[in-house]
Design a protein around this nucleic acid. Sequence first.
DNA 1: ATAATAAAAGACAAAATTATCTTTTATTAT
DNA 2: ATAATAAAAGATAATTTTGTCTTTTATTAT
Lengths: 145, 145
Amino acid sequence: MAIFSKTCEYAIRAVFFIAQCSSNGTRVGIKEISAGIGSPEFFLAKILQDLSRKGLISSIKGPNGGFYLSELDARRPLSEIVEAVDGEGLFKGCALGLTQCSEINPCPLHEEFKDIRSKIHLMLKNTTINNFNEELLRGMLSLKR
Amino acid sequence: MAIFSKTCEYAIRAVFFIAQCSSNGTRVGIKEISAGIGSPEFFLAKILQDLSRKGLISSIKGPNGGFYLSELDARRPLSEIVEAVDGEGLFKGCALGLTQCSEINPCPLHEEFKDIRSKIHLMLKNTTINNFNEELLRGMLSLKR
DNA sequence: ATAATAAAAGACAAAATTATCTTTTATTAT
DNA sequence: ATAATAAAAGATAATTTTGTCTTTTATTAT
């Protein structure tokens, strides 16, 4: 199994792509985004609609419309995207799926995963959506295939 | 999303449970295992059949039969169970699902996930199936609910 | 006002995961 | 040998995830 759901993979790649386009104030359409990250167009549309409804990205309908990120949106930590799409299961909860797992009633892997989870969470909290803009624009990083 | 698939969660909890029972040479039936870890009986049966076919756990049919772990089985690292069930996606591959992601063609999160992945892998490689037997038998760790 | 554009929303479908039940096969005890 | 036991295997179904297509709504340019 992968770390993120397919939905979340597309979401992250898409917000990186939109951030890139937004850095010069341009809006970008769903066709260009899905082509740019190599995702199914209509599926990604659903995902972005959801992120838009949740206020994590912005969009405008009609000619010259499209998706974009406000200054604030672009500076949000990636963890908010992940949490909005995949929930907090990666950061919290029990690795073995036990609802009652806790400090006082731990599963065998409770201690060992505590560190790992917090590392993942911290990393995603410290990474903003616009973090890679320059490198993406320079073509040093890939979002496709 | 959770770290492991439901299938893998059940698999891990089950092998811990079997290890416990096997520590005194006893075999244990699917009914007792599924009751012991709180999993759907027939679904777990499928999972254990698969692990058995792959040679990771042992079983004997008929009266007094059941599942058990050989000395060798019990000392295997948890990573082998995880890999057998969920594949190596948690340890290798691209976090953003890019097939072409690599050192020379990295996705934005390539560097940041390298460390995390290896940490997860290392932890699961250093944790053996019988690692928690004593604590489980003493009731200090939970596998249920 | 009207036509064109692009996201939003709705409906539907394929595929994968999770779950359940039945039949078969191997083993043991009698 | 026979009956009882328990895993293996097979078949089917529910649910979730992933993916596709169509219709509606909002916005812009003419």
